[in-house]
Nucleic acid binder design. Structure first.
Lengths: 342, 342
DNA sequence: TAGGCCCTGGACAACGTTGTCAGCTGAATG
DNA sequence: CATTCAGCTGACAACGTTGTCCAGGGCCTA
């Protein structure tokens, strides 16, 4: 007896279906479908009757059934690292705007920099049959997406390259940006320059480190091991790393911060110092202008927009070979990067 | 002839179905279903054969069909104002975490403060049959959601109250927070205090204004019309409003900023002034500690978490009457709010 | 007035999955 | 050796929608 009760409660409160609407309006099922989809071939009078029935019953089309029938979901998935990160907010929003322009919804999730969670999320989105997928890689092996891509899920990797798979990518010029930033410090007289970046398994982290080394090499400047620190970007570690560089036998006179989270912490630590230490950070930050922080800026919104547009171009049938787009960065001088060595 | 070609290309690259897997593994359809859902009653040997077929064909379950059959989508919708706003990032992330803990995906969209777009989005999510809906209202009439709520979509309104409908809400104490912030300024000797807030149709904006008036009245302090400015929070308008208050016949000595966007712009304008103007802002901001900005902080993550937990409690069957939760705010003194009148 | 055409409306199958139920096999039991 | 039972397995319907196709009726024309 509990059987039937449970049943009727479970499936979303017994929502009315087109069949119910049809019955109430005294028309055929298909006619309701035509009205709901604004298809031609329905008399104004019939349409009115159907609309009234829809109104009265509180009917709403079940898109799951629609998707099942049509094959397209009009939705795309976005797997990013952390929705709460100020870099990804604008990126996500830009993707959403493009999706909206194409009549698609956005489903997104955060991987929290965990490769397993990235995979889990991406595959869950594929199971929902998103038309396309934008992934900010946490892991470095994306072969698990091969069947999906082959099956037609338009996929674009963003911010970091895909691993062991040939696919579309939209990246920022991490190497060039870091190189320019460090060269900027060198140009202002610095030689002992620290680098604090993210974990080495993250591509952008190693690219930026590579840029650092390139700039130092360009200037014929030696690099001490103790000036470089890669690892998780939680405040505690970054703080410790910064303080270590500032207090060693050969203390640095400038720091290059590998991303926005690092920059924020480094700024705090530097504010506590007596010496004025120069700083250039990768990624712009809100209010950085007021704090006078010199940054290498990458346009998160542009990255997201580019990726999404690329994705929809793919969906619209263009099946050129996988493309790799690299967007330039901009150095914005605001003071902290122009301080002379102390 | 193009007919068949178009057809076969359209539906997502002819993905394999359970039927295909069954055929390849030489088993029945239902057995594949059992394996995919880890249901009991399958011989290890059979399971292996099925797994191999799945592997070989690159099969992935079609969740649309599953949803159609089962009635639950294991996903919730979040309609917010702007994903790129630093207040909503953490909120969204908190919702996501709770959803994840309940095995649900998050679909979200930005209303851009447009009531029509809010409705469009919310209803689109309902058509996808999300199990629950979290809405940060842009409009002030949510009767359009009545049939959905009646049909079983667990709905929670956040940050601002629902309009003309009885539903669950999770709010911050805008009135109390603003009152405390303004009282703080008064306690530090200010009498001519400006208020810059969002458009009056936004509930939190008027609540905060009410708090401002309450604090001023508490102190028996007169309020000039020219000290109050409500409107869109784009930098240009806020800048103009701020400059007007600072240059009138009775210039203010302190400003209360109605939200984070306003605060950011006001900080910029104040930095250009010769006089030191006191400031308290509603919402905390990244790096506000370094800039010494005193704020009324509301915990965005806590708001999101509370709302999501409430939603899932609803889904789990608790059908108490609609609840209204109000979360407290915290004043964080950092210097800008403690400046004496100039 | 008869014939043909267009316009509207409806019956039916199909989308890919899961729930129900019945059949089959092999082992355990009388 | 017959019978029962349990454990696997598969056939079939159903979920709610849309595409296909056909029927009926009104209107125009010859």
């Amino acid at each position: 007896m509990a059987e039937t009760a449970r049943h009727s409660e479970t499936r979303y409160g017994n929502r009315p279906t087109m069949k119910d609407v049809a019955a109430r309006a005294g028309v055929g099922l298909k006619t309701v479908s035509r009205v709901v989809n604004s298809e031609p071939g329905v008399t104004p009078d019939t349409e009115r009757r159907v609309q009234e029935a829809i109104e009265a019953l509180g009917f709403r089309r079940n898109d799951s059934a629609r998707v099942l029938r049509k094959g397209r979901t009009a939705s795309i998935g976005l797997v990013l690292e952390d929705l709460a990160d100020p870099f990804y907010g604008p990126l996500s929003r830009a993707v959403e705007e493009v999706a909206r322009a194409h009549g698609a919804l956005l489903i997104n999730g955060s991987s929290a920099e965990d490769p397993e969670r990235e995979q889990e999320l991406a595959l869950a989105l594929c199971a929902r049959r998103v038309d396309g997928l934008i992934v900010i890689p946490a892991g470095d092996d994306h072969r698990y997406l091969e069947p999906e891509i082959k099956a037609g899920v338009a996929t674009v990797f963003v911010d970091r390259p895909a691993g062991r798979i040939d696919a579309d990518m939209v990246l920022s010029d991490s190497f060039g940006g870091a190189r320019e930033g460090v060269a900027h410090l060198i140009a202002h007289g610095h030689r002992r320059i620290g680098f604090i970046g993210d974990q080495p398994r993250i591509h952008t982290a190693t690219e930026r480190l590579r840029g650092y080394h390139a700039a130092m090499a360009d200037a014929g400047t030696r690099v001490e091991d103790s000036w470089v620190s890669l690892g998780p970007t939680d405040p505690d570690r970054v703080r410790a790393a910064t303080e270590r560089m500032l207090s060693g036998p050969e203390p640095v006179t400038a720091v290059f911060a590998g991303n926005n989270r690092v920059t924020v912490t480094v700024v705090r630590v530097l504010a506590e110092q007596e010496r004025r230490i120069a700083l250039v950070g990768f990624d712009d930050i809100e209010l950085a202008d007021l704090l006078g922080i010199t940054v290498i800026s990458q346009d998160a919104a542009a990255v997201g927009r580019t990726a999404a547009e690329h994705l929809f171009r793919r969906l619209d049938g263009a099946d050129h070979t996988p493309a790799r787009v690299e967007l330039p960065t901009t150095l914005i001088a605001r003071g902290s990067g122009e301080l002379p060595p102390a």
